[in-house]
Simulated assay, not measured.
Amino acid sequence: MTVDCMVEDPRWAAIEDLAQVATDATLTRLGLEPSVFEVSVLACNDARIAVLNEDFRGKPRPTNVLSWPSAERGAAMDGEMPVMPQFGPDNELGDIAIAYDTCAREAAEAGKTIGDHTIHLLIHGTLHLLGFDHERDRDATLMEGLETEILGKLGIADPYRNDTGHQAS
């Protein structure tokens, strides 16, 4: 996988390595060869992502991660797998933006390392680039299950469960 990182906020010192781990693990899990695909990552702060969130989603506030797929790949039926990209002349999957302030705050609130939370958010963003979504119930179940499985293979705890093993609300 080629990950092109644009670092606007210097607090994102390790973003390139984290992005590589997250995108490679996601593509590998889905049976795709990571070396033939490309993703761009913007590592920014809350002020920048708030502008992007308003411009593209009409929500004038910061968020943790945003993604822009290069093509529509979503599943027609709730809970079905999206159409996976094929190796071809354009192997750009899309763009991801991630905000340091929100990521760091969420990690601290959840008692996680910022590295683990960043990998989770980048896996989440990569799945969006591949057509996964969480708007419909079964789509959300599929996406969260994949996130949990990929994170588990990386030795990172299930982000959707609390310390007692119950689903987080």
Results as ranks from 00 to 15, higher is better:
residue 61 R to D: 03
residue 62 P to A: 12
residue 62 P to H: 05
residue 62 P to M: 02
residue 64 N to C: 11
residue 65 V to G: 00
residue 66 L to N: 06
residue 66 L to W: 10
residue 66 L to E: 05
residue 67 S to G: 13
residue 68 W to H: 05
residue 70 S to D: 12
residue 70 S to T: 05
residue 72 E to V: 13
residue 72 E to T: 10
residue 73 R to L: 15
residue 73 R to T: 09
residue 74 G to P: 00
residue 75 A to Q: 06
residue 75 A to H: 13
residue 75 A to C: 07
residue 77 M to A: 15
residue 79 G to V: 13
residue 80 E to I: 03
residue 81 M to S: 09
residue 82 P to E: 03
residue 82 P to I: 08
residue 82 P to F: 05
residue 83 V to N: 01
residue 83 V to W: 03
residue 83 V to I: 11
residue 85 P to Y: 13
residue 85 P to S: 12
residue 85 P to C: 09
residue 86 Q to S: 13
residue 86 Q to Y: 04
residue 86 Q to A: 14
residue 89 P to C: 03
residue 89 P to I: 11
residue 89 P to N: 05
residue 91 N to V: 08
residue 92 E to T: 07
residue 94 G to Y: 06
residue 96 I to W: 00
residue 96 I to R: 00
residue 97 A to L: 01
residue 98 I to D: 00
residue 98 I to L: 08
residue 98 I to M: 00
residue 99 A to L: 03
residue 100 Y to K: 02
residue 101 D to T: 11
residue 101 D to W: 14
residue 103 C to A: 13
residue 105 R to F: 13
residue 106 E to A: 12
residue 107 A to Q: 02
residue 108 A to P: 01
residue 109 E to D: 15
residue 110 A to K: 15
residue 110 A to R: 15
residue 110 A to F: 14
residue 111 G to D: 14
residue 112 K to P: 00
residue 112 K to N: 12
residue 113 T to C: 10
residue 114 I to E: 10
residue 117 H to V: 04
residue 117 H to A: 04
residue 119 I to K: 06
residue 120 H to E: 12
residue 123 I to H: 01
residue 126 T to I: 05
residue 127 L to I: 06
residue 128 H to E: 04
residue 129 L to A: 07
residue 130 L to Y: 05
residue 130 L to R: 05
residue 131 G to L: 09
residue 131 G to R: 07
residue 132 F to A: 04
residue 132 F to S: 01
residue 132 F to T: 00
residue 133 D to F: 02
residue 134 H to D: 15
residue 134 H to K: 13
residue 135 E to W: 11
residue 136 R to W: 08
residue 136 R to V: 10
residue 136 R to N: 05
residue 136 R to I: 06
residue 137 D to L: 12
residue 137 D to E: 15
residue 138 R to D: 15
residue 138 R to A: 15
residue 139 D to W: 11
residue 140 A to N: 09
residue 142 L to K: 12
residue 142 L to C: 03
residue 143 M to S: 10
residue 146 L to N: 13
residue 146 L to I: 15
residue 147 E to S: 10
residue 147 E to T: 14
residue 150 I to E: 07
residue 152 G to R: 06
residue 152 G to A: 07
residue 155 G to D: 06
residue 155 G to I: 08
residue 156 I to D: 04
residue 157 A to I: 03
residue 158 D to G: 03
residue 160 Y to W: 15
residue 160 Y to D: 07
residue 162 N to I: 13
residue 162 N to W: 14
residue 162 N to F: 10
